[in-house]
Design a protein around this nucleic acid. Structure first.
Lengths: 294, 294
DNA sequence: CACATCAACTGGTATATACCAGATTTACCT
DNA sequence: AGGTAAATCTGGTATATACCAGTTGATGTG
């Protein structure tokens, strides 16, 4: 019965081969191994009875991971494709795919839609305490950074923004969304909201620079304190497109409220990071049960 | 040619049905729809030509997501299984699986190996600035928290710990690993390292409580400042087991160095969180270009 | 009633196949 | 040389099938 199945498979597979015309050698190789393989399958069921009890796709992922670790594969190098992995390790394409997907969720690998998968670069370090502008510290650290302005709008405060800014609902708000690239690759999306009456004509500025700088230079406003929330969550379709990652991936969301010396909140920012691309640090000072509660 | 393929499929499928014997109704249903389906397949290829151009598994995930949002499915409720989804939506098991996996990586759903998938509970909020013990603040917020001591060891400092503690390599170090549960479910793993000579007989204490409390009460040591790093990464197999999540998932790693009033580091902690289970907040004060220069 | 057993679940892994659409490369033609 | 069209890559989606190993609940036995 199984053999009959095999024969039928051959006929359909040949039809395919006539069109694609390239996998014939691989196919023949597998056919030669075929008879022995059939016995193997009936015996111990591959790998599970073996001492190496780890799933095949994990083993393959491990091999690639070590190739990255040893430097055989370097940052932004292209990885073997799903199909070539399946030939190389004599597994199905799906198994090769799972290995690559595992590396992707780990963050070691990123994928560019229909072009291939590549080795992820080193993480960017973002010191959230050092709120003196991510842009400026990054540039000081020689991180190449390109800022793309995605959208700028003048809108009004909904209930959430109103509460954050301690202003009435409907207050004029400036909003802009920017996409940050490093090494030619998107790293995070940032949307910032500013109280409009405090920063007239803010959007006239070139936003492809540190906004903290603009606020300091043109509006004499400096960040003094901030409240930050960091969480991991699933990516939204529109975000996925901007970050050029596939849906059903996780990102890190970082929200911050920035206050001036008087404690008045003037900027609300929302950042959506490719999780594998960053690392967040903070320096904290324990509030000795005085004002700060929670 | 395609039709021939179909006929062949039927014959093999019947063979299978004789053994499993349970999915016959589903199979018949599908067979009745068969002729129309075949035409559909030849025309626009399901869903892609449709206005609803989103992949089938995304649509299914969306439906379940809205069921969670509306409260039809509540925290820790069990979700439909992969097989029942595939019947319900008339898709293959793999497609149903992908829908569930998507929800899992989003964090809306967690899976307990071979028992099923369940709706994730609300996130725990962890204020990292408020270093006055996660345990104590959680208990103040009525979060039920169970601490399981996984391992306690007395070891010596490797180069990394030595550097962190500003002590020579080989210094005696106390280490313990604890698993934190909430609502009967594992939330994060914490491993803490203490300089041994400063905290004699520390491991004699019951570690199923706030260690900050122990340090304050028995050793007159209070946390004053801390350095924290947060990053997203892939989970290690041993961690996955403790957290009862599957491999190839992402977790949030939180490392912290805790210092006393004199600025001397006395505790190094490493936490591995189920990413969907937590949300980290911090209150930061901008260092006005004085000491802090990262 | 306690305990062992077994049938029926569950997700996990794996294969084979198919077609799609976008990206890239090659080949050819002007 | 330049440009276009076809071939051939890439991953994305989907189906059907199979067997595995835990979990759970029902069934029966001591």
């Amino acid at each position: 019965m199984q053999l009959t199945g095999k024969v039928r498979d051959l006929s359909t597979q040949n039809k395919t081969l006539e069109r694609t015309g390239i996998h014939q050698i691989t196919f023949l190789e597998r056919a030669i191994r075929g008879s022995a393989d059939l016995l193997d399958k009936h015996r111990g069921k591959d790998s599970r009875s073996d001492p190496s009890s780890r799933p095949r796709f994990v083993q393959i992922a491990d091999e690639i991971r070590s190739q990255i670790a040893t430097g055989a594969l370097k940052e932004h190098d292209i990885l073997p494709s799903e199909r070539s992995l399946s030939e190389q390790y004599d597994v199905s394409r799906m198994t090769g795919r799972r290995a690559l997907e595992a590396l992707e969720t780990e963050g070691l690998v990123y994928s560019a839609d229909r072009r291939g998968r590549f080795v992820s670069p080193q993480r960017l370090k973002y010191n959230v305490s050092n709120m003196v502008s991510f842009v400026r510290t990054a540039q000081a650290d020689d991180v190449d950074l390109r800022i793309e302005v995605v959208e700028t709008t003048e809108t009004v405060a909904d209930s959430r923004l109103a509460a954050l800014f301690e202003r009435p609902v409907g207050s004029a708000i400036i909003a802009y969304t920017r996409l940050f690239h490093s090494g030619g690759h998107p790293i995070f999306i940032e949307t910032e909201y500013l109280v409009a009456d405090r920063f007239p004509d803010f959007l006239q500025n070139d936003l492809r620079q540190s906004t903290t700088q603009i606020l300091e230079n043109s509006f004499a406003t400096t960040a003094s304190t901030g409240d930050i929330v960091i969480r991991m969550r699933g990516v939204q379709p529109d975000e996925a497109q901007l970050l050029s990652i596939s849906t059903s991936h996780t990102v890190i969301e970082l929200e911050q409220v920035i206050r001036d010396e008087a404690g008045v909140p003037f900027c609300f920012g929302n950042q959506v990071w490719r999780g594998e691309m960053a690392e967040f640090s903070a320096h904290t000072i324990v509030a000795r049960r005085s004002a700060d509660k929670d």
